[in-house]
């Protein structure tokens, strides 16, 4: 699903050039659940952004579904992204002015799904995430765990092949965090590929494979027994 060859990302400000990622070669297969770990500033989030095509690499190749996308324009990237990738963030990133239902509906709007189909899909996912009773509330009216469940609902509503999660439990207490991890596991068992950035060794236990980053380099990759290609 994902393959990178010598991926490199530099951040340049007026005076300093920071290498966020250097020579990263990673392959992620379909239906895998991968955790990316490493200390702050090691390039985890940068890598996730590149995976999600929110950003272009400075150098190297990036194959998404066997398509080299590293030189794609913003519009091309947006088109691939909206059809294939769902995002879950540490800080939920729900739009305050939209209700739970409307937040979850958003990706479908950009995909051009018809109104009746949208209602059906959104209701289905809200039901599955057990947040249906809150569908007309605004994000500020929900607890953190509920907000993250809405965010996960939004990530999966369009049935993407890949979910990218950036510290999905970082802002949650352990009970809520556990719940979110269970949801992600269920999704993975349903066939969705998941790439998750995390600080938490506990959370990484849920993954099949853990990639360790340090100063922009891949240090180790540990396979778990659970997953066999």
């Amino acid at each position: 699903m994902i393959r990178t060859i010598n991926l490199k990302k530099l951040y340049t400000t007026e005076e300093v050039e920071t290498t966020a990622l250097d020579n990263v070669n990673i392959e992620i297969k379909e239906k895998e659940f991968v955790a990316i770990m490493g200390p702050s500033g090691c390039g985890k989030s940068t890598l996730l952004n590149l995976f999600g095509m929110l950003d272009n690499p400075t150098d190297g190749e990036y194959y998404f579904l066997n398509e080299e996308v590293s030189k794609y324009t913003e519009r091309q990237r947006a088109n691939i992204r909206k059809a294939n990738i769902g995002f879950v963030f540490q800080s939920f990133n729900l739009i305050d002015e939209l209700t739970v239902f409307e937040n979850v509906e958003l990706p479908l709007l950009y995909l051009g799904v018809s109104s009746s189909e949208r209602t059906k899909m959104v209701n289905e996912v809200l039901e599955r995430m057990q947040i249906m009773h809150r569908k007309d509330h605004f994000p500020q009216q929900l607890s953190g765990g509920q907000q993250q469940r809405v965010a996960v609902s939004r990530a999966v509503v369009a049935k993407p092949a890949l979910i990218l999660a950036d510290e999905p439990t970082g802002n949650l207490d352990s009970a809520n965090g556990e719940e979110v991890m269970n949801i992600l596991t269920q999704l993975n068992e349903g066939g969705t590929t998941i790439v998750m950035v995390t600080h938490s060794p506990h959370d990484s236990e849920f993954a099949h494979r853990v990639i360790h980053l340090f100063d922009g380099h891949v240090v180790t990759e540990n396979y778990k027994e659970k997953f066999h290609v």
Binding site: G52, N93, I95, E97, L111
Partner: peptide
Amino acid sequence: SKEVGLRKVVGAGRAG
């Protein structure tokens, strides 16, 4: 800006 970013993440184009 957060909203803009989010809309872009879920697939909004610049024109939209």
